[in-house]
Computed example of a mutant assay.
Amino acid sequence: MTESASSAAPAGVSARSPGRWASLAWPLAGLLLLLAVWWLVTDVLRLYPPYVFPSPGAVWAEISYGLWGTGPQDGKLLISVLGSLRRVLTGYVLALLVGGGLGILMGIWAPLRATLGAYLTGIQSVPSIAFVPFAILFFGLNERAVLAVVILEALIPVALAVSGALLNVPPALRMAGRTLGASGPALTLRVLLPAALPSILGGLRTAWSFAWRALIGGELLIAGAGSLGEQLEVGRNTANVALVLATILIIGLIGGVFDALLRRLETRVRRDYGLEVSA
């Protein structure tokens, strides 16, 4: 029996391996197809002039110069990436703290949920770019205005996700917690929040995407040193479409990487809770 179990384990591992490779192969194939079509349109057919639609090589040159170039004007893209990451992570962490606190209060206090929760739902439908003029008038043309927009955009989905997850905790868990002597803050912190964690993580991933989009929109209108929004503005002012596309690709890559990390964390937690099974 021991030999059969040990021989079955490698078979299970090898059976899962093709699925994992296939999940990576399809996105890679799509990327290669997209690059091939891009190269065909720009370098082979030349349907557009380079100053309108640059080739993949021209965009890659901007990325390489901007990230690890050694010239006097090189490396600015890397500085912009670091500056934008610092801003968005600062705003995101603050939004998690404030939004998480508001979400807990809304989840346990019905009057606050009926008033503030309804307002937050309405504000969430407003595009983040609409808050930038108010932030400029209130804080001025500085980094605080950008952070304010990022915090506001990320705070709302966090608060709504936490309050909604607390309300969706099964009543049996509440009764079990009270039976074991937990009540008030102890019931919320030791029973309800751990039970609601898988649903909360989905809201945190949504909050990240909101924060990242709000940051780029704010930086684009509040141009400052060391930001990806500034690079987009520089590319527009100098008619450097390759720089604009390079910056857009980096913005999408960073956003996708962080989303994938949060998705991986969410999947692992859901598996630990028995809500998913590994393929």
Rank of each mutant, 00 (worst) to 15 (best):
E3L: 15
S6N: 13
A11W: 05
S17R: 09
W21E: 03
A22D: 10
A25M: 10
P27L: 10
L33A: 14
A36Y: 08
R46T: 03
R46H: 11
G66R: 14
W68N: 12
W68K: 06
T70F: 08
Q73H: 07
D74W: 01
D74I: 05
D74N: 07
D74K: 03
G75K: 08
G83E: 09
S84P: 05
Y92V: 06
L97A: 10
I104N: 09
I104G: 03
L105H: 06
P111D: 05
L112A: 09
F131I: 00
L137I: 15
G140Y: 01
V150Q: 13
L152P: 02
A154M: 12
A154C: 08
S163Y: 04
A165I: 09
V169M: 02
P170E: 12
S183C: 09
A186L: 13
L187E: 15
T188A: 07
T188M: 14
L189G: 14
A195M: 02
I200Q: 04
G202T: 14
W208V: 02
L215S: 02
G217R: 02
L220F: 09
I222H: 00
L232M: 13
V234I: 07
L245C: 08
L245S: 03
I250F: 11
G252V: 08
I254R: 12
V257H: 05
V257P: 08
R268Y: 07
A279D: 08
